[in-house]
């Protein structure tokens, strides 16, 4: 497995480009590892006031909080930095990861008593393809490619992968496109 994972390709997110079409959501369910469930999150930020939507994939943290708080050792990170969805035989459906993840990513599938989350379309990325969501995204809110490609396309933005939540700094594999020169995003 994973011999063909293209390490030079990275994931870039920019939710201000999102048009809320949910193509990513439909495509995510097509990912073979998800059993036709969508793992990506698209939601209105506050529909009464704005049409703004946000899109969230798993950021694949360097030191994933989800894996740390898991009582069943069900979440693992691999050599490519991909934080995998819960091991189906171990997960006990406690939702610790769901509530602790600072990006609000893991999903508790109540019916299956199982947590599921984005694994960056491992069925595709592990054979050198791009993740489904970033392939179909019509707005570039999700993009999968090299840093050089990104630099060329959006020279006035900088990929940032450091996020501040209170006194915690979380570094991630997935990048957020920020105004040029930014080094981090303080969320809370």
């Amino acid at each position: 497995m994973a011999q063909s994972y293209k390490v030079q390709q990275e994931f870039f997110v920019d939710m201000q480009r999102c048009i809320g079409c949910r193509a990513c959501e439909a495509a995510c369910a097509e990912c073979e590892t998800n059993g036709h469930e969508s793992m990506i999150h698209v939601n209105y930020v506050d529909r009464a006031q704005t049409i703004q939507t946000t899109v969230q994939v798993c950021m694949h943290c360097d030191d994933p909080v989800c894996a740390n708080v898991c009582p069943a050792d069900a979440i693992t990170k691999d050599e490519f930095g991909i934080v995998h969805s819960a091991n189906t035989s171990r997960c006990i459906g406690c939702s610790n990861c769901v509530m602790a993840c600072p990006f609000g990513v893991p999903k508790k599938m109540e019916k299956y008593d199982l947590m599921m989350k984005c694994n960056m379309c491992y069925d595709r990325t592990s054979v050198g393809k791009k993740p489904m969501c970033a392939t179909v995204c019509p707005s570039g809110a999700l993009f999968f490619g090299t840093r050089e490609q990104m630099e060329k396309m959006r020279p006035n933005s900088t990929p940032v992968n450091k996020f501040i939540f209170g006194q915690e700094t979380v570094e991630t594999k997935v990048n957020l496109m920020m105004p040029k020169g930014s080094t981090e995003l303080k969320v809370f």
Binding site: H41, N43, V45, T54, Q56, M99, C101, P102, G104, K186
Partner: peptide, 11 residues
């Protein structure tokens, strides 16, 4: 989780 995503988007 949704609130966190909203806050990230707003930030």
């Amino acid at each position: 989780p949704e609130g966190k995503r909203d806050m990230l988007a707003n930030a």
